[in-house]
C-alpha cells in the first residue's frame, strides 16, 4: 500500500512537470542587418568590415588608374591571393576576406583590361587536366591549353599594427597599416603600391573571432 502511494506521488509530480513545459509562443529576437560599409553597433580598434570594404574599393580603383595594369596593349595576367599577403598585426583576421574581395571586385570591374589567374585553384585544374589527358573523362568543349596560365604580376603585402594603452584609464589605441604591392614576377619590380592606414581608440577592446 505504501509502495502504491509512493508510485502515485512520483506519477503526479511527473504530470505536474510536464504541464510546466509549455511552448514559449512569442516572437524571437529579429535579426538586425547592418550596413557592412559603415560602423555597426559593435566597434573595436581592429580592422572591421567597413575598413575591408573601403580599403579594397580604394585599391581596386587605384589599380585601374595604373597604365601598366589597366591599359596595357596585352592585358596582363594578375594573381591576387593571400599567399604573399602577411598579417603581422595584433588583429585576429582572415586575410582572405581582404584579398578575395579585392580580386572579385577588380575582376568584375576590369572588364578585360586585366586577366586573372586562379593560382589558388591550380591543384583543382591540374587534376582535371590529368583526367582529361588520361582519357578518364572527355575533353569537354573548351579547346585544350598547353599549360595553365602564368602570372605577370602578383599581389604581395603586409598588415601591421602598433598598440598603445593608458594604464590609468584603460584606453587603448591601435594604428593599423595595410600595404598592397603588385610585383613583376620576372624582375621583382614593384609596379604599383597602395597603403591604407587608420588609428582607432576605445575604452575597451572588443573580441574579434
Amino acid at each position: 500500500m505504501r509502495r502504491l502511494f509512493k508510485m502515485s506521488t512520483v506519477f503526479a509530480a511527473g504530470l505536474a512537470l510536464t504541464a510546466c513545459q509549455t511552448v514559449d509562443n512569442t516572437a524571437g529576437t529579429p535579426t538586425t542587418y547592418v550596413d557592412p560599409g559603415s560602423s555597426g553597433p559593435v566597434r573595436g580598434v581592429g580592422i572591421e568590415s567597413q575598413d575591408i570594404i573601403s580599403m579594397t574599393d580604394q585599391m581596386m580603383r587605384d589599380m585601374l588608374t595604373e597604365p601598366r595594369l589597366a591599359s596595357a596593349a596585352t592585358p596582363p595576367h594578375i594573381i591576387i591571393d593571400s599567399e604573399y599577403f602577411q598579417n603581422e598585426s595584433s588583429s585576429r583576421l582572415n586575410k582572405n576576406s581582404i584579398t578575395d574581395r579585392l580580386r572579385v571586385s577588380l575582376n568584375r570591374s576590369a572588364q578585360g583590361r586585366m586577366q586573372f589567374v586562379g593560382r589558388h585553384y591550380a591543384d583543382m585544374v591540374a587534376k582535371e587536366r590529368e583526367l582529361k589527358r588520361q582519357g578518364v573523362v572527355d575533353k569537354a568543349t573548351v579547346p585544350g591549353a598547353k599549360a595553365q596560365k602564368g602570372g605577370d604580376y602578383r599581389l604581395g603585402g603586409r598588415i601591421t599594427s602598433l598598440d598603445s594603452r593608458d594604464p590609468r584609464t584603460g584606453m587603448i589605441q591601435r594604428y593599423n597599416q595595410i600595404v598592397f604591392e603588385m610585383v613583376d614576377l620576372e624582375t621583382a619590380e614593384i609596379i604599383w603600391s597602395g597603403i591604407y592606414e587608420f588609428a582607432k581608440s576605445a575604452q575597451d577592446d572588443i573580441i574579434y573571432r
Binding site: G37, S38, Q50, I53, S54, T56, D57, Q58, M60, R61, D62, L64, T65, S109, F198
Partner: peptide, 25 residues
C-alpha cells in the same frame, strides 16, 4: 554607370583643409 564607391575617410584638423579623391571604374 557603376556601383557607388565605398565611403572613404579623411581627417580634417582644426581650421585646415584636406583633399578627397575618388576614381571611377
Amino acid at each position: 554607370s557603376e556601383p557607388v564607391s565605398a565611403w572613404k575617410r579623411f581627417n580634417l584638423p582644426p581650421r585646415s583643409s584636406n583633399t578627397y579623391r575618388e576614381s571611377s571604374i
